[in-house]
Write a protein that binds this DNA or RNA. Structure first.
Length: 482
RNA sequence: GCCGAGGUGGCAGAAUGGUUAAUGCGACAGACUGCAGAUCUGUUUCCUGGGGGUUCGAUUCCCUCCCUCGGCUCCA
């Protein structure tokens, strides 16, 4: 197991990571409430923690990664009511879309997506435990957590209750003793989905599902909890309070990781601000790998600005600089096979290639500095560019050696994966070749006007040509419309 | 108001108690090319929010101020 450090939001310092029972790592990340289409901000958090899980797996840890799905809550009920759809069905529909987006983005490290409503017995048991231990009280069919009974409440966010209170939006919730008390079990209003409980029909509060799920799947204490920075207070604070109060064991979580917000037009991208950009739509327009690269090109804790018409264009240019040599190596290897004889690499190049993945691991092992690792890949791309013209002379194992750092990028960062666009390329290739051979003949006859006309026509069709000596390569300028 | 995260070149964005502060994008020039593109080479000069302090030396550590963003029970 590789040693690595991580910034823990609770202690506010970078700490060496030590699992409770090595090599196992229990990892939980707050998922979304799928009441609407996912936006670019959601994608960032998902990709950030995907890389964390991928890296841990590579480094010899056995990760069990759980991401919950809040499939019952006020927004779902409201949205379902507007559309005349059962909220649970609505949640399921949006979750399927999310899952598809994750698949496209290469987020495949999540082992399990538990739905809140599948954990009603655990939720009820936890609420009952809190009531019987005096940490929670029923009122008007609901149950509230008594924050005053949990003195360390606020430790994660640094919030002090007296200070927080001034800015608190005090909702008219009858029976609540203090404004900071949060709801564990919410009495059902007529027509709402509800479950039976000792306090009457109702549904779980937002915070309790996570600790009910982790209690069941990861135990009373586990290693790593992630989520967006906006969830730190009150959500994660509430998780700590209710879980530690219910089980009597602490700490609930050994390492808290919070991902920085994606900002758009100077503010956090969010539904309530109304500045959202669709995740699916952006993936469709730029391709999943460019979106992924955009996220990982910044440190996960920093705020990341999304500028329409600029950020992803820039990311595409930068990503292509890596993907192009990576792709040519993969193609060459597919053609030649690793067994083919040929020239070997000079010793210093081979040493650099085989050593780089390890140093990239070291870089990433310092609080998941993906940007610094990417910088290392750029340096390698430059070296590989020098070898691209000589690929056919190289042995299969030499090409494979050149590819090693890019394989690291694929395994850990999830970049350089074949996408639908490259599948489309295979279909188009024979057709494009027909035009190319006509153009090559024209060029041989120095009929450049004709050759340029063919090049221009292909460009209109979305295909850009690049002459490399006698050979001509082609690239799709835009994603195929689907 | 309180709590937290940030302020780095034209832009994005890393790192570090110490010779020229990564990397990418963009721009400019050269090589290559029939041209273009891609690639390579070079250039992009005084780039670390302001002011104090600690230090032989700070962008890095400490204090303070300013600015931006997030949270303060809807949030990834």
């Amino acid at each position: 197991m590789r040693r690595f450090t991580v910034y823990d939001s609770l202690s506010r310092e970078i700490r060496l990571f030590v699992p409770i029972t090595p090599p196992k790592v229990g990892m939980f990340v707050c998922g979304l409430t799928p009441y609407d289409e996912a936006h670019l901000g959601h994608g960032r958090t998902a990709v950030v923690f995907d890389v964390v899980a991928r890296a841990l797996a590579r480094w010899g840890y056995r990760v069990f990664y759980v991401q919950n799905v809040t499939n019952i809550d006020d927004r779902l009920i409201a949205r379902g009511g507007e559309r005349g759809i059962d909220p649970l069905k609505l949640a399921e529909r949006h979750f399927l879309a999310w899952h598809l987006a994750m698949e496209t983005l290469g987020v495949r490290s999540v082992n399990y997506y538990p739905f809140a409503t599948d954990y009603l017995p655990e939720i009820l048991a936890q609420v009952e435990a809190l009531v019987s231990k005096g940490f929670a009280y029923p009122a008007e069919g609901s149950v509230y957590f008594d924050v005053a009974r949990f003195p360390s409440y606020g430790a994660l966010s640094g919030q002090r209750l007296d200070a927080a209170r001034t800015g608190t939006r005090i909702e008219a919730e009858p029976g609540k003793r203090a404004p900071e008390d949060f709801v564990l079990w919410k009495a059902a209003r007529p027509g709402e989905p509800s479950w039976e409980s000792p306090w009457g029909p109702g549904r779980p509060g937002w915070h309790i599902e996570d600790t009910a799920i982790t209690g069941r799947l990861l135990g009373a204490r586990y290693d790593l909890h992630g989520g967006g920075l906006d969830l730190k207070f009150p959500h994660h604070e509430a998780e700590i309070a209710q879980a530690e109060a219910a089980t009597g064991e602490r700490p609930l979580v050994n390492y808290w990781m919070h991902a920085g917000m994606l900002q758009f037009k100077g503010e956090k991208m969010s539904k309530s601000v109304g500045n959202v950009v669709s995740l699916q739509g952006t993936i469709g327009r730029y391709g999943p790998m460019v979106v992924r690269f955009f996220y990982l090109n910044a440190h996960y804790r920093s705020p990341l600005d999304f500028v329409e018409g600029k950020s992803l264009e820039e990311a595409r240019e930068a990503y292509d600089r890596l993907a192009q040599p990576a792709g040519r190596l993969a193609e060459a290897l597919a053609r030649s096979g690793p067994e083919r004889a040929g020239r070997e690499l000079p010793a210093e190049v081979a040493t650099a290639a085989t050593g780089l993945p390890n140093s990239l691991d070291e870089t990433l092992a310092e609080d998941f500095n993906s940007r610094a690792a990417i910088a290392g890949l750029f340096g390698w791309a430059r070296t590989v560019q020098e070898w691209l013209p000589h690929l056919d002379a190289l042995s299969g194992s030499a090409i494979s050696t050149l590819e090693a750092p890019f394989r690291w990028g694929r395994d850990v960062l999830g970049l350089f994966e074949a996408t639908d666009a490259s599948a489309g390329r295979e279909r188009l290739d024979p057709l494009v070749r027909v035009v190319l051979s006509a153009r090559t003949r024209a060029r041989e006859r120095k009929e450049f006007a004709e050759a340029d006309r063919l090049r221009a026509d292909l460009l209109t069709a979305g295909i850009r040509l690049e002459d490399r000596g006698a050979e001509t390569e082609w690239h799709a300028v835009r994603e195929p419309e689907s």
